[in-house]
Design a protein around this nucleic acid. Structure first.
Lengths: 212, 212
DNA sequence: GCATTTCTCTAGTGGTCGCTACAGAAAAAC
DNA sequence: GTTTTTCTGTAGCGACCACTAGAGAAATGC
């Protein structure tokens, strides 16, 4: 078995020299990605620790030593997801020159991403902790969803200020509409909608925008 | 304690005279409504049988005798929900003279219903079985969601055939858009959106419709 | 009154949950 | 080599899960 400590775990080796003692027998990043897929597909509660250890190919004590408890592992998974599979929205918001282009690109990419057979359908942040006995985990994802909508609203407000969008534009409502579309598309991807169907949905959704 | 057998339990008394033996000490319909609220708020998995017995005010054997097992109880809850709190869509579809009016009314009523503080936020059918270990329960609700969208599509197609909507109208996409809006609104109600915010959302969503 | 029927209460079933004590294994430091 | 440090595998913790056997309670029909 390959021993490749990726060096990302700054938790264990803080002040001491380097690596002492027996090295970890699994790749932390790979195991984390496996956990991500499991949580993405089944959600937080429905993915048990024994599911995780089986899928990640490690024992329970190794999991707890490397990732803390189940909730810490989930939080790390959410962070990784937001920086990779779930980053297309932020990327569009940062790279496109208008809010409208950013939203159009976000919806288009969501249609592709949410129906990609290479990984579970839909959005992990939308679904992974709905109807969950851990209130903290639910709050974690809810705040992330609301923060995304707030980011969109502020981007739209910037366009209104710059004169790119009409003065009367209701930025909050427009951002909320985009959020609702994303969440609805995610749900429908889980319910079996195809990429083409979601793309048609995205196209329709864009017709509400002022300049067209 | 009041003894009011509602007579709806046709399961027990099939061929025999009437009620024999000790009568049930609780009102079945009231207990069912309590179960509905619990499942609506916490979802299928996160509502345990001991939660249910506590909330319904009955012992576990009484629950199993009156409702079968947990899944049967949930299925009955879903049926009741669809006929009461969740019936506004079907009602609008049946009563309004055009698909457009039906959808507009549905979205408006969803904004009110999903944020009504008298009961849990959002839609039971959208949320109660997401990320669930029981595949059958997930399928039960998924099929209901997809059936709703199919019903809307067929209503829209009827309007196109009647010339109320333009000939080129993509009925399936328009229905899917409405479904996505409903699901997005339900998610946002759960995330804390107000009735006014959802009403603004509904109004925006209607601007995509051909005749306006 | 008595027998019959049905419900309710107590108490518990086996199973899974998230999590961990402990001992042995495997590496580095010396 | 020995010592030290860390990881891994076994085995099991108490708590909760959905569910039920069995006895007693409360109504009926006679």
């Amino acid at each position: 078995m390959p021993v490749m400590v990726t060096g990302q775990d700054a938790k264990a080796q803080a002040g001491n020299g380097r690596t002492r003692g027996r090295p970890r027998s699994f790749d932390r990043a790979t195991a984390l990605e496996k956990a991500l897929m499991a949580f993405w597909e089944h959600g937080y509660e429905a993915t048990s620790v024994s599911d995780l250890t089986r899928i990640m190919g490690i024992g329970a004590p190794s999991l707890y030593a490397a990732f803390g408890d189940k909730r810490s592992l989930f939080e790390e998974v959410v962070r990784v997801y937001a920086d990779t599979h779930g980053a297309f929205g932020d990327r569009a918001l940062a790279e496109e020159s208008t809010a409208r282009d950013a939203v159009a690109r976000t919806l288009r990419e969501a249609a592709a991403e949410y129906t990609d057979p290479a990984h579970p359908f839909g959005c992990l942040v939308v679904h992974a902790a709905t109807n969950c006995t851990s209130a903290e985990v639910e709050r974690l994802l809810r705040e992330r969803r609301n923060a995304n909508i707030a980011a969109m609203a502020s981007r739209i407000r910037a366009d209104v200020a710059a004169g790119v969008l009409p003065a009367g534009t209701d930025a909050a409502a427009l951002a909320r509409h985009t959020g609702a579309m994303i969440q609805g598309m995610s749900q429908q991807a889980r319910d079996g909608a195809s990429r083409e169907e979601l793309e048609a949905l995205a196209e329709i959704a864009m017709t509400i925008w002022p300049q067209d």
